[in-house]
Structure formats: structure tokens, C-alpha cells
């Protein structure tokens, strides 16, 4: 197991867990969020292909459309 930081909270995940699996484990709706990994936005098409590393910092956020 490794620990990552998801929206400022420490979360433990299995070694080899992809970004998309992290979101699914957290019951986060995939169609409603964007994601930054270590301060770099990761396009949704890349989420299944990137595996979490120890101490990775994930920010998951929604689109804000108002103005």
C-alpha cells in the first residue's frame, strides 16, 4: 500500500492503482470533475493510464461556470 494526498486528505491505495481507480474507490463521479496531479492537470483521457506514486498530491475539482 502507498499513501497519497487527495484534496488535502491522506488516502491509502494499493500499489499500481490508476487515477481513475482512485476516483472510483472514492465514489467520485468521473463525469463531473477535473484532476490535477502534483499541480499539473491530467486530461481525462489519461486517467486510466497513470499509476499513483507514494506521496502524490491529487486535487479533484468541479467546473465552475457562473459569472
Amino acid at each position: 500500500m502507498i499513501s497519497i494526498v487527495l484534496n488535502d486528505e491522506v488516502v491509502t491505495v494499493s500499489i499500481g492503482t490508476s487515477l481513475v481507480k482512485v476516483l472510483e474507490h472514492q465514489a467520485i463521479e468521473l463525469d463531473a470533475v477535473a484532476l490535477a496531479l502534483n499541480a499539473e492537470v491530467v486530461p481525462k483521457s489519461r486517467w486510466p493510464h497513470i499509476v499513483c506514486q507514494q506521496d502524490d498530491k491529487l486535487d479533484v475539482f468541479s467546473v465552475v461556470a457562473g459569472g
Binding site: 463525469d31 463531473a32 492537470v41 486530461p43 468541479s62 467546473v63 465552475v64 461556470a65 457562473g66
Partner: peptide, 16 residues
């Protein structure tokens, strides 16, 4: 690239 057009949106000034 950041927000694909098919994603669901909940936050607008009218709703929240």
C-alpha cells in the same frame, strides 16, 4: 482539454 463538453456541471450562480 480541461473540461470536455460532455461533462456534467452543477455550479452556476443561479443554482448555488
Amino acid at each position: 482539454c480541461l473540461y470536455p463538453s460532455d461533462m456534467s456541471v452543477s455550479q452556476t450562480c443561479q443554482t448555488v
